[in-house]
C-alpha cells in the first residue's frame, strides 16, 4: 500500500467516524417519532400521506402483521416495476424509443431493485426509458432501502420493549425513514454530484463524431445474447469500425445519490460509478464512498441509543471496523502488487510520482489503485454493489476480498438496515455459544435467548449460504449455466460463484465476464435474490416479536457484558467461523486456486 492509499482510507474513515454519532442520533429521533424540527416541519405532509393511504399512524402491529404488510408492499413493487418495463415503449419519457424489456429480464430487474440487490443483467443506457429509470428503479432504490431500515428498527424495538405484543407500525416506519432520512440526504447529495459534473437532464442522447475512426473487435453473440465460442472455448469476434460516439444523457445524478445512500448500487449507466457521467471526479468518488457507509454506520449508534445504552452500539461498530479495515488493506495491497506475469515481461509496476503502479486493468486512471480498491471493499461489505472498477479485472486476491465480504453475510456495516440486523443475529448466536461455554442461560440486552430465537437465527443465517451454494452448483452443472461463461476454468467458476453470492446477499455487483442476461440466469438469480432478502427478514421479524414479548432480565454479577472487548472478539469470531467454514471450500476452487496458479507460474 502506498502512503497516499493509507492516508486516503484514514481520512475517509475518520470523517465517517465523526458523522456516526450525530447522524445515528438523528435517525433514532426520527424512528422514535420525537418532535425534532424536521418532523415538525413535515408533520402536515406526513399526516396527508396517512390520510391518503388510509393509515392509522398510532396503530401498532405484531410481528406477523408487520412482516406480511412489508411483504405485500414489496410484492406490489415487484409487479409495478415488472409492468413498467413491459410497457415502457408505449409510455412517455422514452426519447430513445427503447422497446419493451423482455419478460425474463423484467422479472429479474423488478425483483433485483425491490430486494435492494440492483443486479443488472441489462445495460441501462440501451435498455431503460427515463420513466422506467425514475418511476420504477429510482423509486425502489428509496423503498427497498426504507424496507431494510424498518426491519432493523423493528428488531431494535424487540430488544428495547418488554412484555409487549407489538414491534411498531410498518407504514409510519417506511414513511418516516423515506421522508426524513433518505429523501433529504438524496437531494443534498444529488446537488453535490451535479456540482461535480454528474449529468441531470431529460435530453435525448447526443451523437458526436470522433476525431479518428475507431477499429475494434466486436464479440459475436447468438440470438439469446450468449457469446459464440470457437472449438477452444475462446470468444469469437469480428472486426468493426465506427466514427460515431453516442453520449448518454438523462436524470443520472438523482438516481446516483440514492443508489449510494440506499446501498442499492444499480447504475443508470452500464459502467456504473466507473462512468464519468456517474462519477466524474476524485471528490465525487469520495462523496459516493461516504454516502454508501453513512447510514449503515450511523445505524449502529441508532441501535445503542434506542436500546438505552450507546456502548452496545459502539461494540457492534467496533466489531465491524475490526473486520473491515484488514480486508480493505488486503484488497489494496493485492492490487498494488500487480500481476507477476506482466512484471516478468519487464513492465514497471511500482508506484511513483508518474504512475499508480500495480494492477490498473479495469480501473479508472482518475481514481487509481487506492480509491478503486477501497470502493470495491466498501461496495461489498455493504449491500451496495456499485462499482468504480471492474471486479473481473481485480487480481485473484483482490477479487477474493469482495467475494468473501459478501459471503460473510454483509454484516460489516452491511446494507442500510440489513447490515445491522444481520450483525445482531450473529450477536444472538454469539451470546448463545458463550452461554453454552459458561453454562448460563444466554442473555442479550436483558433478554433471555431461548430455543425460538436460536431457531430463527439459524434460519436467518443459513438461508443465504444454502441458496448461494446450491445455485452455484446447479449453474456449473447445467448447459444453460455454463453457456454464459466467457472465461473457462477457475476464473469462470469465480464468476458464477460471485453472481450467486451477489444475488443471495442482495449486493448486485458483478464479476463481469458472465453473460447473465439469459432466461436461465434471469430466473435463477431472481429467485435467489427474493429468498435471500425476504426469508431472513421474516425470521428476523419473528425474533423481534419474540423478544418484545419477553420481560427484561436485571443485570447481575453473572451477566455477560456485551459492550466489552470480550464480546467484540466473540462477535468477530462468530462471523468469521460461520462465513469461513461455509464458503472456504468454494473459494478454494475459485480465487484461491487462481492466486496460487498465478504466483506459482
Amino acid at each position: 500500500m502506498t502512503p497516499v492509499s493509507i492516508a486516503f482510507v484514514a481520512v475517509f474513515f475518520l470523517l465517517l467516524l465523526v458523522a456516526v454519532k450525530p447522524f445515528g442520533l438523528y435517525m433514532a429521533n426520527v424512528m422514535e417519532g420525537r418532535p425534532i424540527w424536521p418532523l415538525r416541519v413535515g408533520a402536515r405532509f406526513e399526516a396527508f400521506i396517512y390520510r391518503l393511504c388510509g393509515i392509522d399512524p398510532d396503530a401498532q402491529m405484531g410481528w406477523k402483521r408487520y412482516a406480511i404488510a412489508l411483504l405485500i408492499f414489496n410484492t406490489l413493487g415487484v409487479i409495478f416495476v415488472y409492468a413498467l418495463q413491459r410497457a415502457q415503449a408505449w409510455l412517455p419519457l422514452n426519447p430513445q424509443q427503447f422497446t419493451n424489456v423482455s419478460a425474463d429480464s423484467s422479472f429479474n430487474t423488478a425483483v433485483s431493485f425491490v430486494t435492494n440487490t440492483n443486479w443488472q443483467g441489462y445495460s441501462g443506457e440501451s435498455t431503460m426509458s427515463y420513466l422506467t429509470q425514475m418511476a420504477g428503479l429510482a423509486v425502489q432504490n428509496f423503498l427497498s432501502a426504507a424496507s431494510g431500515i424498518v426491519v432493523a428498527i423493528a428488531l431494535i424495538r424487540g430488544f428495547a420493549r418488554h412484555s409487549a405484543s407489538t414491534i411498531g407500525n410498518v407504514w409510519t416506519d417506511l414513511t418516516r425513514s423515506t421522508l426524513y432520512i433518505l429523501l433529504p440526504l438524496a437531494l443534498l447529495l444529488a446537488l453535490l454530484l451535479v456540482g461535480q459534473g454528474v449529468v441531470q437532464n431529460f435530453s435525448g442522447y447526443k451523437d458526436v463524431s470522433t476525431i479518428e475512426t475507431l477499429s475494434y473487435q466486436n464479440p459475436k453473440v447468438d440470438a439469446g445474447g450468449n457469446p459464440i465460442k470457437d472449438a477452444a472455448g475462446n470468444p469469437v469476434t469480428e472486426p468493426a469500425t465506427t466514427q460515431k460516439q453516442t453520449l448518454p444523457m438523462g436524470p443520472i445524478a438523482s438516481q446516483e445519490s440514492i443508489k449510494e445512500l440506499g446501498t442499492n448500487g444499480g447504475g443508470f449507466l452500464n459502467a456504473n460509478s466507473a462512468h464519468p457521467y456517474e462519477n466524474p471526479t476524485a471528490l465525487s468518488n469520495f462523496l459516493e464512498l461516504f454516502a454508501i457507509l453513512l447510514i449503515p454506520m450511523g445505524l449502529t449508534y441508532t441501535f445503542g441509543r434506542m436500546v438505552g445504552d450507546t456502548r452496545q452500539g459502539w461494540a457492534v461498530f467496533a466489531a465491524m471496523t475490526i473486520l473491515f479495515l484488514p480486508l480493505v488493506g488486503l484488497g489494496t495491497y493485492s492490487e498494488q502488487q500487480g500481476n507477476p506475469l506482466i512484471g516478468k515481461l519487464g513492465v514497471d509496476q511500482t508506484a511513483s510520482a508518474l504512475q499508480p503502479g500495480g494492477n490498473m486493468e479495469g480501473k479508472e486512471s482518475r481514481f487509481g489503485i487506492g480509491a478503486s480498491a477501497l470502493f470495491a471493499s466498501v461496495t461489498t461489505v455493504t449491500s451496495c454493489g456499485a462499482v468504480n472498477t471492474m471486479h473481473d479485472s481485480l487480481t485473484p486476491l483482490g477479487g477474493f476480498v469482495p467475494l468473501f465480504q459478501m459471503q460473510l453475510g454483509e454484516v460489516v456495516f452491511g446494507g442500510v438496515g440489513t447490515g445491522l440486523y444481520s450483525m445482531l443475529i450473529f450477536a444472538i448466536v454469539g451470546v448463545f455459544i458463550a452461554g453454552l461455554m459458561i453454562g448460563r442461560t444466554p442473555e442479550y440486552l436483558g433478554k433471555k435467548i431461548e430455543a425460538f430465537e436460536i431457531k430463527m437465527s439459524s434460519i436467518a443465517i443459513l438461508v443465504m449460504p444454502f441458496i448461494v451454494l446450491a445455485g452455484t452448483a446447479v449453474a456449473v452443472s447445467v448447459a444453460a449455466g455454463k453457456a454464459g461463461v466467457a472465461n473457462p476454468g477457475a476464473h469462470g467458476f469465480s464468476e458464477i460463484l460471485y453472481a450467486f453470492s451477489s444475488a443471495g446477499n442482495n449486493n448486485g455487483s458483478a464479476f463481469g465476464g458472465l453473460s447473465a442476461n439469459t432466461p436461465f440466469y434471469n430466473i435463477a438469480l431472481g429467485l435467489t435474490m427474493w429468498f435471500g432478502r425476504f426469508w431472513p427478514i421474516v425470521a428476523v421479524l419473528a425474533i423481534a416479536g419474540s423478544l418484545a414479548a419477553k420481560k427484561r432480565v436485571p443485570v447481575t454479577a453473572g451477566t455477560m457484558l456485551t459492550y466489552g472487548p470480550t464480546f467484540v472478539i466473540l462477535l468477530i469470531g462468530t462471523v468469521l467461523l460461520v462465513g469461513a467454514l461455509t464458503f472456504v471450500p468454494a473459494l478454494a476452487l475459485g480465487p484461491i486456486v487462481e492466486h496460487l496458479t498465478l504466483w506459482g507460474a
Binding site: L71, A103, D104, S546
Partner: peptide
C-alpha cells in the same frame, strides 16, 4: 409469458407468506 412471470411473483409472495405462518407455529409469539 407475462402471466407466467406474474404468477411466479405471486408464488414467491405465497412461499414467503407461508414461511411467516410456519415460523409462527414454531413458538414465540403470534
Amino acid at each position: 409469458m407475462d402471466l407466467i412471470f406474474i404468477l411466479m411473483i405471486v408464488a414467491l409472495y405465497a412461499a414467503t407468506h407461508w414461511l411467516t405462518w410456519a415460523l409462527s407455529r414454531l413458538g414465540g409469539v403470534e
